[in-house]
């Protein structure tokens, strides 16, 4: 796969400008900056700079205490995927499974050679607070495995145009689509992020900064997906991040609860659960950091 992504990177860089032009030189330098960010190279040889590309999973404040409670004991599988999550279903139990999800999972499973039950979908993050739609707390894992599979977008994109034509989904075509958007952490992530950055940021003769790259890697709904083979638990987590927006909401609700106007019941419940989540994380020796989303940690 490395060859595929390396070729794409080369094409992107060549498209920037003529050989030996300042723009192309700057593009190459920016590419190296991104490589450095992915590898987390520090200013001195062999040093770490802080930050770097990380595997993250988002989780809501409501589920954090259970995750922490389930993180004890040998071989704990605290983070649950769709196949192992306890039934939290409201309404009637659907008679038919979601065929789209089944087909997407099967296509990813075929390409990654992982059992569907072992696939855990996370995201690549640099310095932000992850995919906030999936939870207000972002669990940053200590390390990514070198053979971790990475997709340059949400894998469900293979079930919609342009990767899938309108009409019935075709399993073979979906597998090819997964193959075209996937790579491996060690070999391909740098190339994937260079391609994504150059496709997203207007090419200029200025150096890219960590914040700019971080914004491209995970921006709003657009993220780079990680397919992790196997679950994880609290001891695999390096730190927990939450966005400044969520923290501001929490503080505002607390302030209004003390002095008025009285927050709604849902707001009070949400704030209380966040407090409870952070107490649970503290008991697991996990630090919660408030970060600006989606840019730098400030």
């Amino acid at each position: 796969m490395a060859a595929k992504w390396k070729e794409q990177r080369t094409r992107e860089l060549q498209n920037v400008g003529k050989r030996k032009s300042e723009r192309r030189a700057m593009a190459f330098a920016n590419g190296q900056t991104i490589d450095g960010i992915v590898k987390n190279n520090g200013p001195d040889p062999g040093s770490k700079a802080g930050g770097g590309a990380r595997v993250v999973f988002n989780m809501s404040n409501e589920t954090i205490p259970k995750f922490c409670a389930d993180s004890t004991g040998p071989g704990a599988k605290a983070y649950l995927n769709t196949y192992t999550v306890a039934v939290r279903q409201i309404g009637g139990k659907p008679k038919n499974v979601s065929k789209r999800r089944q087909m997407v999972d099967e296509a990813v499973s075929k390409v990654t050679k992982m059992r569907k039950e072992d696939m855990y979908f996370g995201a690549v993050e640099i310095s932000g607070s992850g995919v906030r739609f999936y939870g207000d707390y972002c669990l940053v894992l200590k390390r990514a495995r070198e053979d971790e599979y990475v997709l340059d977008r949400n894998s469900f994109d293979i079930a919609r145009p342009p990767l899938a034509p309108n009409g019935e989904l075709d399993a073979k075509r979906m597998e090819r689509a997964v193959d075209s958007i996937s790579g491996m952490w060690k070999a391909d992530l740098g190339h994937i992020l260079v391609v994504k950055t150059f496709q997203s940021v207007p090419v200029s003769s200025r150096r890219l900064t960590l914040g700019q790259v971080s914004t491209v890697v995970l921006n709003d709904e657009d993220y780079v997906e990680v397919v992790r083979n196997g679950s994880f638990e609290a001891s695999d987590v390096d730190e927990v991040r939450t966005s400044a927006t969520e923290s501001a909401r929490q503080a505002a609700i607390g302030d209004r609860a003390s002095h008025g106007p009285t927050p709604t019941l849902a707001e009070l419940q949400w704030r209380e659960r966040r407090l409870k989540a952070e107490i649970a994380l503290q008991k697991m020796n996990l630090q919660v950091r408030v970060v600006t989303a989606p840019g730098r940690i400030r």
Binding site: T82, K95, Y134, S155
Partner: peptide
């Protein structure tokens, strides 16, 4: 949100897919 892929992808993050009536066939 721009894409329904984000919403269906949420099923992998512990969300339940859809809301059904008791018969398990009809969505609400």
């Amino acid at each position: 949100v721009g894409s329904r892929t984000l919403s269906l992808g949420a099923a992998r993050a512990g969300f339940q897919t859809g809301l059904y009536l008791d018969d398990g066939e009809s969505e609400v």
